[in-house]
């Protein structure tokens, strides 16, 4: 599948296919969605175990759940302030969803749903809609002064306002494309070097020795991809928090 006809096929790993038989096919439920369900199940399982144990001195799993809780709670408190407490579950859901999507993608044969621009774009639009909704709910019509900073000269308004509006909407693009591009690039690289291992490994007696090089590269890449998986989830969550800060405080 990887090296049909001596060509490198790095993109077929992103193809969708229906799962759960005829029912999945009928409702267009792909393996991507299945991994989303697995991610939700893992997130729920982790937090449920954390709460069920509820020991004073946490064990490993409980410590993991509490650490992720504390990590995002601290992030929201630092970025948004105490008013941000009610948005914590939202940021936490976003973080866990993206993080588990990225990490599940590191398993062999697994599907990385965060490598689909439609998924990241939808998540970004959800964030955008929530943030804008929060801003409108708190500030009402006053929210629109966000696009014209106080104290700026009036005659600059025709320039500043379009720029501010464009930058506001470009949040959706930057948020979604950053995650999508990182995940696609990482998985394409992994696939390309994995294909090299197979292609070079077939070159007779020296093959296995030459193939060790792309294999070593892949070992490094896997470590790097774990870093990226955490980093991108962190970036997605902290940008969401920063946007929420803007929504709550308007600058």
């Amino acid at each position: 599948m990887a090296a049909e006809g001596k060509t490198i096929d790095a993109l077929s790993q992103f193809e969708l296919s229906p799962v759960l038989g005829i029912f999945g096919n009928a409702v267009s439920f792909s393996q991507s969605n299945l991994f989303m369900v697995i991610a939700v199940a893992i997130a729920y399982f982790l937090m449920k175990v954390t709460a069920d144990r509820g020991e004073l001195v946490p064990g490993r799993l409980q410590a993991l759940g509490e650490a992720s809780y504390g990590f995002i709670a601290g992030m929201v408190r630092d970025q948004v302030g105490d008013e941000g407490k009610k948005y914590f579950p939202f940021v936490f859901s976003i973080f866990m969803f993206v993080l588990l999507g990225n990490l599940l993608g590191m398993l062999p044969y697994a599907f990385t749903f965060t490598s689909h621009i439609m998924v990241t774009l939808t998540l970004a639009i959800v964030v955008f809609v929530v943030v804008t909704g929060v801003a409108l709910a708190i500030h009402g019509m006053h929210f629109f002064t966000y696009f014209f900073p106080e104290g700026a000269p009036k005659w600059l308004a025709p320039i500043i306002i379009p720029v501010e509006i464009i930058s506001y909407f470009s949040r959706v693009v930057s948020l979604s494309v950053r995650l999508f591009a990182n995940m696609v690039a990482g998985h394409v690289m992994l696939k390309v070097f994995a294909t090299f291992v197979v292609l070079l490994g077939g070159l007779g007696a020296v093959g296995p020795f030459v193939a060790a090089m792309p294999l070593a590269v892949n070992v490094v890449l896997v470590g790097f991809e774990f870093l990226v998986a955490f980093l991108q989830a962190y970036v997605f969550a902290i940008l969401t928090s920063i946007y929420l800060h803007d929504a709550v405080h308007l600058h």
Binding site: S30, Y44, P89, F92, S93, M96, M118, V119
Partner: peptide, 22 residues
């Protein structure tokens, strides 16, 4: 279909986290 399911699944995640787990 992926997007529609994503919205449903993410809503479920948010509900589970906000109302039950967190």
């Amino acid at each position: 279909g992926q997007v529609v399911w994503l919205l449903l699944i993410f809503a479920a995640l948010y509900f589970l986290m906000a109302k039950i787990a967190l």
